[in-house]
């Protein structure tokens, strides 16, 4: 199913934070469920064509989670974190750490906000705060999927993007 809702990434240069913003054509309660129930998360959080599985999932204040993601070559990676706040249907605050990094201690603080919009729609804003600019930039670079990047576009298109990317 194609969607006209665009995903916006706001990552101002030199900052330790980034925002992922997207609207959905569904009421907030429903969107919140898809973002906070294990059954649904397992269907969408992982990379394309690869599912994840939760070995621990406690969506409540003070709870924690850990999930495993497989890769095409049979390798497995773990991710874990602690839930700071789980307020249905408006806000989830948790930490996030990728276990595959060469050293421990690179933790991200993630706040997901769910805003109701007119017409039974919802805006989700995920705000991630990293411990350093390098951590953030590393995360963005690791998010590259197969490196299929369009060749250079026209300058005015780029500038539009640049403005969106750099000025929240």
């Amino acid at each position: 199913m194609g969607s006209t809702n665009l995903t916006r990434i706001v990552a101002e240069a030199g900052k330790q934070e980034l925002f992922v913003i997207r609207e959905f054509d569904a009421p907030r309660e429903l969107v919140f469920r898809v973002f906070s129930e294990k059954e649904y998360l397992e269907q969408w959080v992982g990379p394309k064509d690869l599912s994840i599985r939760y070995e621990k999932f406690e969506p409540r204040e003070g709870g924690s989670y850990r999930f495993i993601s497989g890769s095409c070559d049979g390798m497995e990676f773990g991710f874990h974190g602690v839930c700071h706040e789980h307020t249905t249907p408006e806000r989830i605050i948790q930490t996030f750490e990728f276990e595959g990094l060469p050293e421990r201690g690179h933790v991200v603080l993630e706040t997901s906000r769910f805003e109701p919009l007119p017409g039974e729609r919802t805006r989700v804003t995920i705000h991630s705060v990293f411990q350093s600019v390098a951590d953030r930039d590393g995360m963005v670079k690791s998010g590259m999927e197969k490196g299929i990047v369009d060749s250079h576009e026209k300058l005015d298109v780029l500038l539009n993007k640049l403005t969106h990317t750099l000025v929240a």
Binding site: I148, V149, E153, T165
Partner: peptide
């Protein structure tokens, strides 16, 4: 732009 774009596509 190329830097952010693959990450955006993942999302």
């Amino acid at each position: 732009a190329d830097w952010i774009e693959p990450y955006r596509r993942t999302w």
